[in-house]
């Protein structure tokens, strides 16, 4: 079973990964597959770079998991996608998957991601440690809605 970081621990994945053909309800669906399903209740969906999350906005309460793929770690569109989903009230699992570096973990967490599926599983321990790289920030973010200037003594 593939493993990932969830709620600050390394766990086994409950979902089957996205695939082009023959995806069932246990799979994370591609945006195209998800769009074609009439009943979306309980279905998970994965966004790729270039697939803005706006089509999901109206049904956020029905979605248990949104995965956002990072085919290359330098493509930062997913950071905005994650944050926009959370800002619009998405409360399910927000998963970053693909080529993620341990060094990006704090940024991802701050943009609202709570699950991290690294393509290279041998880096999971390092990534877990990366979550603690920073514990103070200037900006407002999903995990700290008040910017530092509103919290300074």
């Amino acid at each position: 079973m593939p493993r990932l970081i969830k709620h600050g621990a390394i766990v086994e994945d409950d979902w089957l990964p996205a695939q082009e053909d023959g995806a069932g309800d246990a799979h994370i669906l591609t945006l195209e597959q998800w769009t074609q399903r009439a009943d979306k209740q309980g279905l998970a969906v994965q966004l790729e770079p270039g697939q803005a999350p706006s089509p999901l906005f109206d049904v956020l309460q029905e979605i248990p998991l949104v995965a956002i793929n990072f085919p290359v770690f330098t493509d930062g569109r997913g950071f905005s996608y994650g944050r926009e989903l959370r800002e619009r009230g998405f409360a399910g699992e927000l998963r970053a998957c693909g080529h993620i570096l341990p060094d990006q973990m704090t940024y991802l967490r701050r943009c609202g991601f709570d699950a991290f599926q690294l393509a290279d599983e041998s880096r999971l321990e390092e990534a877990l440690a990366g979550l603690a790289d920073f514990d103070e920030y200037y900006q407002a973010s999903i995990d700290q809605p008040l910017p530092l200037f509103r919290r300074r003594g």
């Binding site: 930062g76 950071f79 905005s80 701050r110």
Partner: peptide
């Protein structure tokens, strides 16, 4: 400067 320093959303523009 403070807002842009280690901004989580805009580190990979």
């Amino acid at each position: 400067r403070q807002w842009s320093t280690l901004h989580p959303e805009f580190a990979f523009l």
